[in-house]
Amino acid sequence: MTAPLGEFDLIARYFTRPPRRAVLGVGDDCALLAAPAPNERLAISSDMLVEGRHFFADADPEALGHKTLAVNLSDLAAIGAKPLAFTLAMALPEADARWLAGFSRGLLDLADRHDIELIGGDTTRGPRNLCVTVLGTVPQGLALLRSGARPGDDLWVSGTVGDARLALGHRLGEWALDAHDQTATLRRMDRPEPRIALGLALRGLAHAALDVSDGLLADLGHILRASAVGATVEADALPASEALRALTPSRRRLCQLAGGDDYELLFTAPATACRAVEAAAARAATPITRIGHIDVEPGLRLIDAQGRVLDNAYAGFDHFRPSSSPP
């Protein structure tokens, strides 16, 4: 019989690597990092994923490892920061070697792709709860903030939006998807791609940015409040996958406007910089779509392709509102 894994065996076997950039990595009371250059600022963000609230109990561990880091890398992308290091704190119901092998593989494969180093964290027994803190660097004065939107800016979004909510609706029995659409949309929900390259390319071009995690309109509201501006969003201009285009307009708008978990970048930039923005996105190999503009008058206006005003009753995800719909 295989001996049960202890806390320090678990850390050593699945999460310890020789430090690369860190002065001191996993295994001591603290990690040690060299201070950033004088003209750089340190960007720090934390996100927690809780079983039953952010992911299903039967989630594939490798996909979950990917997503646990991806949602945090997305925060670095949103501010235009280059990934540097991260910590991982976990509560686990048991030290399951098979689960840990898959989870660590998904986590560290994505870390390698973005050259970000695991430098420490914590483990304990309890309901499954995964918390990552990421650190990145951004040159002084070039961080993409929520407070920078200006009247006349174009409003852009990367990739497509709504697929994660479409996949969630299938899992919850709200609608049924065929096998092809299940595969495509479930991958978008389970393995989001952080837009690091685009965030870096937009430094010095975009005025404001964030990542779409709780729903496009809800997240746009954060930019509008921080910048004291309004916006007009063209609902029918939102980029949609083939699976979303097959839905009725009302369901498509629900997924695209209120659905979370897309982790695409929503950003504003001067209308005069349109070609430069498109060139930056091309260098980052990331599709982008103009979906509206920033207004002087506060408030959010939603219009269709004919310019008709639509009712805006699309609420995003809220961790403390019982009607929110993630698992």
Rank of each mutant, 00 (worst) to 15 (best):
K82T: 09
A37L: 13
S147K: 08
D262C: 01
P249W: 06
L210S: 01
I119F: 15
S147A: 12
R321Y: 05
A95I: 05
L24K: 10
R105E: 12
G159L: 00
M48V: 11
A197G: 12
D154P: 03
D28F: 10
N129Y: 15
G299H: 06
L108S: 06
V71Q: 04
F8I: 04
A258M: 07
P192G: 01
R195K: 14
I79T: 08
C255V: 08
R13T: 13
G299L: 12
A63R: 08
L254E: 14
R150W: 12
V26M: 11
G102H: 03
S324Y: 03
A77W: 00
A258L: 01
V277C: 05
P239I: 07
V23K: 12
L186A: 07
R13L: 10
I119Q: 15
P18D: 14
L100M: 14
C255I: 06
A70H: 00
S241C: 01
A3Y: 09
D178N: 13
P151K: 07
A22T: 03
L144S: 05
Y314S: 01
D29L: 12
L238V: 04
R105D: 08
L69K: 04
R251V: 06
T123Q: 11
I119V: 15
R17S: 15
G106W: 07
L10K: 02
P139M: 05
G159I: 00
A81K: 09
G159S: 02
